[in-house]
Design a protein around this nucleic acid. Structure first.
Lengths: 200, 200, 200, 200
DNA sequence: TATGAATGAGTCTTCATTCAT
DNA sequence: CATGAATGAAGACTCATTCAT
């Protein structure tokens, strides 16, 4: 996963993986037949088992407030990147990218298992007035993921800030939660109209 | 840019680009010396000139309210993807990805040209109490980009929703702006109960 | 033999044979040491035992008329392909082909065991005027084999005839025997002069 | 063609061909894209142009006696192997063998272009009583080819005969023509009865 | 007797790059 | 300015063979 994340699936030679594992590339074929199958196997185990599964539990558990749920989701995603440091990179490269090697599988798995539950929950919270009604349930899920994984993918090579400080995961977590808590809160009255419409 | 976005830089043979352009690959080398330089040149012109430059103007223009600025930035990014349909893909693949072919250049350029101005503006707005003080200026910039480009990169192949509806850019724009307007608003009271942030 | 005939010896992986036999490829090596030896062993048993041996008997048996012998040889060869459906293919591929895996062994075995007896018999029949004197004893043996096995190897995938009929082994047998009986008969008079002789 | 004939198409590495031609294997791909296409190209030119085409002419030319035609076909085939020494081997290996790399193409081409004309000619000659009526037109064509090419493929590595003499193409030609002239001749009366029928 | 694990050598194929023309 | 020809380096995959168990 490290190599796939760092160099992309296409950019990683099986021989390199084999070397890192202390074996020959022929042996990798012996066990996995093909590069794609190696990826599938290891992705299912690592991403499915150690990222999506725990995440899914949050959705299934007790019906918390949407705000609390979102907060926990963000924390869970960020915490997952401690266990799986390659996750953000792999996500942008192989899930978010067109033709990404994990895209089809992940989107389908994520969508079926997670998003529908989450969407339903969001929709009902919106109807109850507990959630900003202008948010879109599906995009909200993407937003959670994008707000966390994309910056993590980027700032891991981020140059020093002007002041010299380095960005931390804690900073990101606070930022995202702050943004979300504000953004999720239901609109007070009708005063705020969704400012800028699009032309096209 | 289309080919780079669809197949990734590494996955696109120079010969393919040459063919699409109606020339030989030897000629591409004649003008650009190397694949990387071709990429740099065309990225500078296309991304620098048609995406970052217009975006930079927004920051330099009149000192708007932060909320209004964020809204305009989001609209501008999404509008840019009409002119540059390959932008979201290229961004996730080659900017957001470790080792992405555009990463170094883009991050540096973006950082120098945009982020510092933007950060300064955000910081001062926070001090004036016009902006949620818990947000992080640098991450806020990333958030704007991630909230728009990442979903655009993903949902262009998104399967039909359960209801059968297809997601549109307009949906995304409304969603992101709604999230941001809420998230940017300064905290009203002490607890995080703020039913509806209000701008001062 | 089936796999060797269908895909050629070189084109058949030992693992495939092992799988078909319900064992591991390591075990095939345990018993046969090497692919070539496996082939030799199985060819000796199958081709030697079930094809060449019965064929040899015909030559050793009572001294029939050459015509009757040839007829019986043809019938025997064609009948053998009922028991050993892979025979024609294996013959063209691995015996008739230069570098064929069975070539050396088969040619030597066939030559020693069969051809000399057969040649002697043919020669003496020619001297007695019972056989077309222009035939060549060694080539006559090859002709018998080629006239039967080559068409069988080919027409097993032969496309439908124009009329839609499918060729059968019976058709072939009748054809070959008709050709041979005519060809073997001693020249009646002087009418048919072997038109164009070649020098080289 | 030499390498393909000696070692089979599957057994010949492109690198070997390239070496023989004094170029790199990458260059072979530059011109032919793939091994199969190289084979197709070269087979079309060599077999199609230098073997099948001249052969086809014989069939199209003046309506000779069947015997004369068969004689000329045999001579032409044998003569072709002087120009194309690899022909017999390539024929047994890649045309006659199941899964042979040239099989589909050759069978189709040969069948369409040659066999139907030839069959029609044979049939009509049979009806006119000029040709042994028990022969099968399609098999007769195969017989001509098999009687010549198969022995040529085999005896090019044939060990010395007992007497020490080496077989020559001239010997083969005389033998085949003798066999054919006898075999083609119409049955005199009813004397010769197609001896051994098949059981199955 | 049997096999799972392992591998070295080799195959086809791709591609950025070079260069003579 | 432009290109056809050419190639070295690399990559995925295959397979006969070995060996410890």
């Amino acid at each position: 996963m490290e190599l796939f994340a760092e160099q992309g699936v296409a950019g990683t030679a099986l021989a390199e993986i084999a070397k890192r594992a202390g074996v020959t590339s022929a042996m990798v074929h012996y066990y996995f037949q093909t590069k794609q199958q190696l990826l599938n196997a290891v992705a299912k185990e690592k991403i499915g088992g150690e990222f999506l599964a725990p995440l899914g539990k949050l959705f299934s558990e007790g019906r918390a407030e949407p705000q609390a749920l979102a907060t926990r989701v963000v924390c869970e995603i960020i915490a997952a990147t401690d266990r799986l440091p390659w996750l953000p990179q792999l996500w942008v490269r192989e899930v978010a990218s067109k033709g990404g090697a994990l895209r089809r599988g992940m989107i389908q798995r994520a969508r079926l298992e997670q998003i529908e539950k989450f969407s339903a929950f969001v929709s009902s919270a919106q109807k109850e007035g507990k959630l900003n009604a202008e948010l879109h349930p599906v995009f909200l899920f993407m937003s959670l993921v994008a707000l966390t994984l994309a910056p993590l993918a980027i700032f891991n090579e981020w140059p020093r800030l002007p002041g010299g400080a380095q960005l931390t995961k804690g900073d990101l977590e606070r930022h995202v939660i702050a943004l979300l808590l504000g953004g999720l809160a239901p609109k007070a009255g009708s005063k705020q109209r969704s400012a800028g419409g699009r032309k096209k």
